[in-house]
Design a binder for these strands. Structure first.
Length: 568
DNA sequence: GCCGTTTTCGGCCCGACTGTTTTCAGTCG
């Protein structure tokens, strides 16, 4: 039973309760669903540990229901509710324009229960015959059905970020935009992005909105107003553009950055102070605007310091802000070196000196070359003699470099028993040994924990790379007792990597936060196989910021000299 | 059903756009 499936059931309960006209409960179930789906801890683990109620919005009653789902695979309460409306509400409401009310109406008038019922009815022209619906609704449903099939997955932030930046550049060239910035989950640095949210100030909102919906790569215009427009891009995501007046820009940026949970918490805080917060500003009882131009102004008016977007998930940041204990977050500029770099000596696509040039251009002052070792399943890994030759090549290269240092290293493979595929004799000669799992991901939790603890405790291992082995949207991470691994890493002084490759972002931010809490140091590593890959650094930084990391928590914010005790 | 600067009861975020409506409901974010 995955988190997403539990969340789906809770969401459906919310919809069903909504339809019965039950007040407030639907919100409670939605909030719980949100917490379950955004938690990176498997829901079974939380259930087994009796820690379900640590999720925000999960109390006694919902915890009991989640436990029932985890144990039995279904929920009696859910099935009882469904008996009144036996339709696949979750699937139907995924269709743009169809909410719970419309789904209920369609069931009662046309007997529609499933997506295929819906499609058949829409194609046959039966939907426009329903009182309250019409031809446009029917067309919208048909388009929505096609779209629902197309957009199954969210965009990786590594793809969404350049896309949004390119979009902003092109829009500014086409229309009257005074300011134009991304907001939403992209600005919060989430690992995947659903829609792109853009926020603008314009002296001519109508012309700006026109320029937006008339872009050549727009596939469909979903909404087109002076304040809000939405389009889908061909082959791309939905993009929402909001246009606000300059005095409201901070309020709008705060609002459209989210998260929803953070905003709700903030609005409650405003209400508690006799204020009202919306996307136009913070207003007092007489409806006078007391803040709105900048985000900082709004947080201050609510008695808080500015909260960085990456922390705005309603996971303790408001309480920390209030107490003045928000972390001074890691910045991209603080990263001085990259401890995970490949070359064409193994499976990289560029030479040693090409990678060095690219790293310098990216503003780094050192890198560690960590090609794969001979492990058979890693393509083109180095044999011991190759590694010795590479060490010599790096030493020779360092002689020619000023203000830059290349560290010797290797990415050793961790075998199923926790042993490494490089001899200790060789490991001792290297500046930076990183170790990682590359196969046998499906070991039992006990075996996997033992395996990683052994690797972390190896005296030569400096960094555990891509610790969970997950690939976003492709492969779930390993099952392991992270508490035990963090403890071992803190004891041995081994750092855990946050791999910055867009499909990895591993450690995930939630585990990074736990690791920091356990006293573990982290690194950001690009795992670069190409000169362009140093651009991934900012993704790793975003992920660690979401994990509440400060510069001091991150090993490669230090100079190469400090990194190498006794080194030059 | 959850939760606490409103604290164990009594509150619970707010606005834009669309379509099908003669004044607003539904959906979305």
């Amino acid at each position: 039973m995955k988190n997403a499936e539990v969340a789906r059931i809770l969401d459906e309960i919310a919809d069903l309760l909504d339809l019965q006209g039950v007040a407030f409960k639907p919100r409670a179930y939605r909030r719980a669903a949100q917490a379950v789906s955004s938690s990176t801890t498997p829901i079974e683990d939380l259930a087994a540990a009796g820690r379900l109620e640590t999720l925000p919005g999960v109390g006694d009653a919902i915890a009991g229901k989640i436990a029932e789902i985890v144990e039995t695979g279904h929920l009696t309460y859910h099935e009882e509710l469904k008996a009144a409306l036996p339709v696949d509400l979750f699937a139907l409401t995924q269709v743009e324009g169809v909410g719970p009310k419309t789904a209920k109406l369609l069931y009662e008038t046309l007997g529609i229960r499933t997506l295929s019922d819906l499609e058949e009815a829409a194609r046959a022209g039966r939907i426009e015959t329903v009182k309250g619906l019409g031809k446009k609704t029917q067309e919208r449903i048909l388009r929505g059905l096609a779209e629902t099939r197309r957009v199954e997955r969210r965009l990786l932030i590594g793809h969404a970020l350049p896309l949004a930046e390119d979009l902003c550049r092109r829009l500014k060239a086409r229309g009257p935009f005074d300011r134009l910035v991304p907001a939403g989950s992209l600005r919060r640095g989430r690992e995947t992005i659903g829609d792109l949210d853009l926020l603008a100030i314009s002296g001519d909102p109508r012309a700006a909105a026109d320029a937006f919906v008339e872009m050549p790569d727009v596939q469909e215009v979903l909404a087109h107003g002076e304040k809000k427009s939405s389009v889908t891009l061909s082959g791309g995501p939905q993009v929402d553009l909001r246009i606000v007046a300059e005095p409201s820009f901070g309020a709008a940026l705060q609002y459209f950055t989210g998260s929803k949970a953070h905003n709700i918490a903030l609005r409650k805080r405003a209400v508690a102070r006799g204020l009202k917060l919306n996307e136009y500003g913070l207003f007092d009882g007489a409806d006078r605007c007391v803040a709105g131009r900048t985000e900082t102004e709004i947080y201050q008016a609510l008695g808080l310091p500015f909260i960085p977007p990456e922390l705005r998930e309603d996971e303790g940041e408001i309480a920390a802000a209030e107490k003045g204990t928000l972390p001074d977050l890691l910045t991209h500029e603080a990263i001085r070196g990259d401890l995970h770099v490949h070359t064409d000596w193994s499976d990289g696509k560029a030479t040693l000196s090409e990678m060095v040039d690219a790293a310098r251009t990216a503003g780094l002052s050192y890198i560690a070359i960590t090609d794969h070792a001979r492990f058979a399943e890693v393509v083109g890994g180095l044999r011991p003699a190759d590694l010795e030759r590479q060490i010599e090549a790096i030493e020779a290269l360092n002689e020619t470099l000023e203000d830059f240092r290349v560290l010797t290293g290797v990415e050793a493979n961790i075998g199923p028993d926790g042993s490494l595929d490089v001899a200790d004799r060789l490991l001792r000669r290297l500046d930076v040994v990183i170790a990682a799992v590359h196969s046998q991901f499906r070991q039992s939790r006990e075996a996997m924990t033992k395996r990683l603890v052994r690797a972390v405790e190896h005296e030569a291992v400096r960094v555990l790379a891509h610790p969970t082995g997950r690939k976003i949207g492709e492969r779930a991470g390993i099952d392991a007792d992270w508490h035990a691994i963090f403890h071992a890493a803190a004891q041995s002084g081994t750092a855990l990597e946050c791999n910055a490759n867009p499909i990895r972002l591993d450690l995930p931010s939630e585990l990074a936060r736990r690791a920091i809490g356990a006293g573990v140091r982290l690194t950001v590593g690009t795992d670069a196989h190409h000169p362009d890959h140093f651009a991934f650094l900012r993704l790793g930084v975003l992920t660690l910021r979401r994990g509440w990391a400060r510069a001091d928590d991150v090993l490669n914010t230090e100079s190469a000299d400090r990194l190498m005790p006794g080194g030059t």
